[in-house]
Design a protein around this nucleic acid. Structure first.
Length: 424
RNA sequence: GGAGAGAUGCCAGAGUGGUUGAAUGGGACGGUCUCGAAAACCGUUGUGCGGGUAACUGUACCGAGGGUUCGAAUCCCUCUCUCUCCGCCA
């Protein structure tokens, strides 16, 4: 969430920035927060002053007792009663104002960075880079959901039987391909300086709040009622939350972590023609890169992370494009996001395979993730993350684009990992 | 699942109602000493939120939330978490 002090000091700039998300009521959102903040400060001043008075009186009673002046102490004690009552009311008032302010701040999304184009939705995203050539397929080329059946490598029906729709079973070379991709992605990240982490894939409520899935987006996550735990929708949640309530030293920055996890998404109500096959699943595998850095470095690092992701796609010989998301299409928490999309030639569609975001201090403020600089001052850090990469759509791209009459060709770089160069 | 113990500052660990934001030790940082280093000695070493141009200052925080009290790290209640032992188990 945004820092209330920043909202106070940069009201107009923030309203302006939020406008690029297509938010109609930005001014109203912000002004309500400012009003609550003002009343919070007034109330706190009032309460603090009164508390200072009563602290002094309590201390005075202690001194009188020690000096054996019990009767004087008793007089003073009697005088305090009404103050106590007032203090209690003020404290209650303050708590409820603070609560209201917090709720209000949770409603305000991150401010898009200056370079982010204004826009309402996907149509306003900017294509900033394209790479690779779209292959020319035979006329009888099949979409991946047909290919996986023909080669018997991914089985949706079995998944339905044991779990439900959107939980595929990977079989034989299909399963090996998953494992190969995961290892390839992890190895590449390690070469780029990331430290591998294998976190839990269920998290508590505090972690959900830390990275911004909660409140409001609990519908996205599977919830284990009995234990109050959420299945992670992305490794971002556990890996970024490793740094919740942490104060790092400057020389520990930037933190570069990578993790493979399964990801679980309920995706309620999103089933239809566009989400066939591997295009959208309830459970899928993903390797995620996460960085924590000093504010002045975060946009350089955003570029660095994109370059890493693009390098992966190039090594996999997949045609892709890079989009700079417009304000309206960005996630709630993000200040700037690039999406990478692979072209799935048989479907004739671009599939989002990675989303790389800079959250600036938005998550760090919730996480209380700070660093102590050389002057001994603490300041909020910036957090970033990106998929590197999400598997199912990569698999869809490989299957569709590399289909031949002899079978499906495995990208060269993966062959050492799969142990085979064709699925036939 | 059963039984017990505990939760204090960067860490270890005192503290059972009245200048305790918190003894002591360690660590870290700065200084003295040294050619340099070690040792020794001296000093510094929290966070949030307010007020103030600032120096500075108020307040809160000893797992969380309530309560008792003029006054709570210290007493009471609830919750959470951790650890140990037993059971079960990959």
């Amino acid at each position: 969430m945004l820092l209330v002090s920043v909202i106070r000091e940069q009201r107009d700039g923030i309203i302006n920035g939020l406008g690029r998300r297509g938010l109609k009521d930005a001014a109203e959102l912000i002004d309500k927060a400012i009003a609550l903040d003002q009343s919070r400060r007034d109330t706190q001043k009032h309460a603090d002053d009164l508390k200072a008075k009563s602290n002094a009186e309590a201390k005075r009673i202690g001194e009188l007792m020690k000096a054996g002046k019990a009767d004087e102490a008793a007089t003073l004690r009697a005088a305090i009663a009404s103050e106590k009552e007032q203090l209690k009311n003020l404290a209650q008032e303050l708590t409820s104002i603070e609560e209201a302010l917090k709720v209000q701040l949770y409603k305000i999304p991150n401010v898009p960075a200056e370079k982010v184009p204004a826009g309402a939705g996907a149509d306003d995203n900017l294509t900033v880079y394209e790479h690779g050539t779209i292959p020319t397929l035979a006329t009888d080329a099949l979409p991946h959901w047909e290919l996986i059946k023909n080669y018997d490598i991914i089985d949706f029906d079995l998944g339905i039987k044991i779990t439900g729709a959107g939980f595929p079973v990977y079989k034989g070379k299909g399963a090996k391909l998953q494992r190969a991709l995961i290892n390839f992605f992890l190895d590449e990240a390690e070469k780029a300086g990331y430290r591998e982490m294998l976190p839990p894939i269920v998290v508590n409520e505090a972690s959900g709040y830390g990275t911004g899935q909660l409140p409001d987006k609990e519908g996205q996550m599977y919830f284990v009622q009995e234990d109050g735990l959420y299945l992670i929708p992305t490794a971002e949640v556990p890996i970024t939350n490793l740094y919740r309530d942490v104060i790092l030293a400057e020389d520990q920055l930037p933190v570069k972590n990578v993790g493979y996890t399964p990801c679980f998404r309920r995706e309620a109500g999103s089933w239809g023609a566009h989400v066939r096959g591997l295009n959208r699943l309830h459970q899928f595998d993903k390797v995620e890169i996460v960085q924590v850095c000093k504010p002045e470095d975060s946009y350089r690092i955003l570029d660095e992370m994109c370059a890493h992701v693009q390098g992966l796609l190039e090594k996999l010989e997949l045609p892709y494009r890079k989009l700079l998301l417009c304000g309206g299409d960005m996630g709630f928490n993000s200040a700037m996001t690039y999406d990478m999309e692979v072209y799935a030639t048989a479907q004739q569609r671009w599939l989002e395979v990675s989303s790389v975001s800079n959250f600036e201090t938005y998550q760090a403020n919730r996480l209380k993730l700070r660093c102590k600089n050389k002057e001994g001052k603490t300041q909020l850090l910036h957090t970033l993350n990106g998929s590197a990469l999400a598997l199912p759509r990569i698999v869809a791209g490989i299957l569709e684009n590399n289909q031949t009459s002899e079978g499906i060709r495995i990208p060269k770089v993966l062959v050492p990992y799969t142990g085979f160069d064709m699925i036939s």
